[in-house]
């Protein structure tokens, strides 16, 4: 058995098994939300002003911590239930970072370097606000991919006829929720698997020496670490430790890694393309990348190579 094939299979399996519980949780939340949330819309529970709706999305991760693996199905359901697109989109981009678990892991990984924590927040909040404000003016139906009609898609991503008749109750309701979650997991899991296979291929076959070659220059290192974040697809709960380990890279480049990864990686790209309209999907691919690049360049100009502290050699907990 070729060693590379075993390594490839091991990495792909590890990524899928690690992410699957979180994706499942997202699908379960989504199915419960579909069944229990009032059909007439949730907007009345949220601020009425545009700024308030975007801010609610940016901060909702504090109450509903999630990682990027499971956030897309939750957001689909939000849109179906009348959560304003401003709130839903801002939540999708911000929540995987703007939550207590990930902020704490960033703080620990960078040994209490507040600049990295705040910089990471800035990296996700900027595109969350921009995309939430811009696309939030559109109707929710127009944000989804053609053919993924709100009613059908939200009844379940798998296309059941939920929503077309009376909701089941009691045990039948539980069974409906569970089979809906299963169908949605099946649908989303296909994209998780595709992304994991791609990330495993990169990890197995990308020569490590390529990394060292780009570490010297911030102008090269920042986009290189952004690209690496996309390709490696490390979970937002673990990526701070990985980023901290790139001790030879400037702090801004390490910030780019933890700033972009939760918004754009090989697991998310297929999901964005499958779920959202081409226009929104393109924006989701471009705007976070440009925003992170801008924030990291500013970070480097303000704080230099080491951030507020000299960093943590080795980057280990």
């Amino acid at each position: 058995m070729p060693a590379e094939l075993v390594l490839f299979a091991t990495i792909a399996t590890a990524i899928v098994i690690e992410a699957a519980p979180f994706l499942l949780l997202g699908c379960l939340l989504s199915a419960v939300f579909e069944h229990c949330a009032p059909a007439e819309g949730l907007e009345r529970y949220l601020p009425r002003s545009a700024a308030g709706q975007v801010a609610a999305g940016c901060l909702a991760g504090v109450l509903l911590p999630t990682c990027e693996c499971g956030v897309v199905p939750v957001v689909r359901r939000f849109l179906a239930k009348g959560v304003p697109p401003r709130t839903a989109l801002a939540f999708m981009l911000a929540a995987p970072v703007a939550n207590p678990v990930v902020l704490a892991s960033t703080w620990v990984a960078f040994r209490g370097d507040l600049s990295m924590v705040l910089g990471r927040l800035a990296c996700v909040l900027l595109p969350a606000v921009l995309l939430g404000a811009h696309f939030g003016r559109r109707p929710a139906r127009g944000l989804l991919r053609h053919g993924l009609d709100l009613d059908l898609a939200m009844g379940c991503g798998c296309g059941c006829d939920a929503g077309s008749g009376a909701k089941p109750r009691g045990l039948a309701a539980i069974r409906s929720i569970l089979s809906g979650a299963g169908a949605e997991f099946l649908h989303m899991g296909a994209f998780l698997i595709a992304g994991s296979l791609a990330a495993a291929a990169i990890k197995t076959f990308l020569p490590a020496s390529w990394l060292a070659a780009v570490a010297a220059s911030p102008l090269l290192a920042i986009p290189a670490m952004m690209l690496l974040a996309v390709l490696l697809s490390v979970c937002s709960e673990a990526d701070a430790f990985v980023a901290a380990s790139f001790a030879t890279f400037p702090a801004a480049a390490r910030l780019a890694f933890i700033g972009l990864g939760p918004m754009l990686d090989l697991k998310l790209i297929p999901l964005y393309l499958a779920v959202f309209s081409p226009r929104l999907a393109k924006a989701l691919l471009l705007v976070p990348a440009l925003a992170v690049l801008a924030v990291c360049l500013l970070f480097h100009l303000l704080l230099g190579s080491g951030g507020l502290s000299a960093g943590w050699p080795g980057g280990l907990p």
């Binding site: 379940c156 798998c158 296309g159 059941c160 006829d161 939920a162 089979s179 809906g180 169908a183 099946l186 649908h187 899991g189 296909a190 994209f191 698997i193 595709a194």
Partner: peptide
Amino acid sequence: RRRVSLSACLAL
């Protein structure tokens, strides 16, 4: 009541 896609099965 559920409909599933063939591509999802292929991925698994």
